[in-house]
Nucleic acid binder design. Structure first.
Length: 432
RNA sequence: GGAGAGAUGGCGGAGCGGUUGAACGCAGCGGUCUUGAAAACCGCAGGUCCUUCACGGGACUCGUGGGUUCGAAUCCCACUCUCUCCUCCA
């Protein structure tokens, strides 16, 4: 969430940012009005409390405390009444301001281009060329079903639509990708984490996933509101929230974590979109990369994070491009996002395989993740970054489609062979 | 699931209901000493918020939320979490 002080000091900045995202800016004045009222009430209450505290201290210092207390009690009682009256609306103000503020998306970085949807995203760079086929390349679901490595029908029988059973070489390849991604993450200096997949409501809230996207989440109610648990929609949630309510030493930054986890999403609102194959699933795996870093270097670190992601696809020999998302396409938490898109021959287009964001201090404020630059310095909020490195299911799609052969088999990229333990999937589904 | 113990500042750890926002130790900062450093000694030093141009002043804060009291880190209630033992179990 944004700092209230920013709204006070630079309301126009916040209004402009909101409009660029395509949302109304009325909330600015509404919050500022509430804030004015709240501060007026707060100042009154605090002055009265100070007065009362002075009287109480007098009793404490008196030689005969009983007598002093008896003498001052009427004045204290009167102050109590005035404090209660003046402070009556304070909790409501706090609640309303908080509720309104948590609905406000992050400020956009100055380098983010205008635009309302993905058509306005800007090509930053591309790598590799789309492979040429002497035949018409097939979509991954056709290849995969024929090879017996993807089984969508049985997945539907088990769980419904948007689930996939990976079988044989498909399951092994998925596991190999996880290994490959984790290996590279470690090589790039990330500490591997195996986090809980179920997290509490407060954890989900602290990373900014709740209220805005709550309809995307699977949850378990528990017996009361406090013990509700949510299935993580991405490992970004536990990784970012690990240091919630902590004050880190400046020299501990940047903290860099990698985790391989399943992710669970309801995909509400995605009806009819990517219904075939395993592009958009209720359950998918990825390796997530998270940074907790300092404000002055976070945008440079974002570039590094993107390089970490694209490096994987270079090694896999899959053509891809980096897009800078426009204002309207940038997510709620992010100040700036690059998407990495891989070439998918079956769909004859690029598809997102990694999304790397700098959330600046937006999540850190909500989660209270701070650092002390040096001993004695004031605590500051860290900047949080997250990105996939990479998405296992979608990379599986990219491999199957980019490395498909005329005979229906699939060649395994060289780099992946030691992880997979085989070099190709033959037309009969066997590996070699 | 049953029984017990606990939760205090960056860390460790004290704290008869009344100048305790909190002793003491470690870590930190400034200084003395030293060519420099270490050691020793002296001093400073939590966080959030409100107010002020500023100096400063004030409120809140000892797991969370209530209560008792003129006054609560200290007493009472509820909740959360942690640890130990038993039970169960991959």
């Amino acid at each position: 969430m944004l700092h209230l002080d920013l709204l006070r000091r630079e309301p126009d900045h916040v209004r402009v940012a909101a409009r660029r995202r395509g949302i109304g800016a009325e909330f600015v004045d509404r919050i500022l009005d509430l804030d004015r009222e709240r501060r007026a009430a707060l100042t009154t209450v605090e002055a009265l409390k100070a007065e009362k505290n002075a009287l109480t201290a007098e009793i404490g210092k008196a030689a005969d405390k009983k007598a002093a207390a008896a003498g001052l009690r009427p004045r204290i009682a009167e102050l109590d009444a005035r404090i209660a009256a003046a402070g009556e609306r304070l909790p409501a103000f706090d609640q309303q301001i908080d509720a309104a503020l948590t609905e406000v998306p992050n400020l956009l970085d100055g380098s983010v281009p205008d635009g309302s949807d993905e058509h306005a995203n800007v090509l930053v760079r591309s790598w590799g060329e789309a492979p040429r086929f002497a035949f018409t390349p097939k979509p991954h679901w056709e290849i995969g079903e024929r090879l017996g490595i993807f089984d969508f029908e049985r997945a539907a029988k088990l769980s419904g639509s948007r689930f996939t059973v990976l079988r044989g070489a498909g399951a092994r390849l998925s596991r190999a990708l996880a290994q490959f991604f984790l290996d590279r993450a470690a090589r790039n200096g990330y500490v591997e984490i195996d986090p809980p997949l179920l997290v509490s409501r407060s954890t989900m809230w602290s990373t900014g996933q709740l209220s805005k996207f709550s309809d995307q989440m699977y949850s378990f109610d528990g017996d009361g509101a406090s013990d509700a648990l949510y299935l993580i929609p991405t490992a970004e949630v536990p990784l970012t929230a690990m240091h919630r309510d902590e004050l880190l030493a400046g020299d501990a930054l940047p903290v860099r974590y990698a985790a391989h986890t399943p992710c669970f999403r309801k995909e509400a609102g995605a009806a009819g979109k990517d219904t075939r194959g395993l592009i958009r699933q209720h359950q998918f795996e990825k390796v997530e990369l998270v940074w907790l870093t300092t404000p002055e270097r976070s945008f440079d670190d974002l570039e590094t994070l993107v390089r970490n992601a694209t490096g994987l696809y270079e090694e896999l020999g899959i053509a891809h491009r980096v897009m800078l998302l426009c204002a309207g396409d940038t997510g709620f938490n992010a100040a700036k996002t690059f998407d990495v898109e891989a070439w998918m021959p079956g769909a004859d287009t690029y598809r997102e395989i990694s999304s790397c964001s700098n959330c600046t201090d937006f999540q850190a404020r909500r989660s209270s993740i701070r650092f002390r630059r040096e001993a004695g310095a004031k605590p500051e909020l860290v900047h949080t970054l997250n990105g996939s490195g990479g998405a296992i299911g979608r990379t599986l799609v990219a491999i199957v489609e980019n490395y498909q052969r005329a005979d229906g088999g699939v060649t395994i990229p060289e780099i992946l062979r030691p992880f997979a333990g085989f070099a190709s999937i033959e037309p009969d589904g066997r590996v070699r």
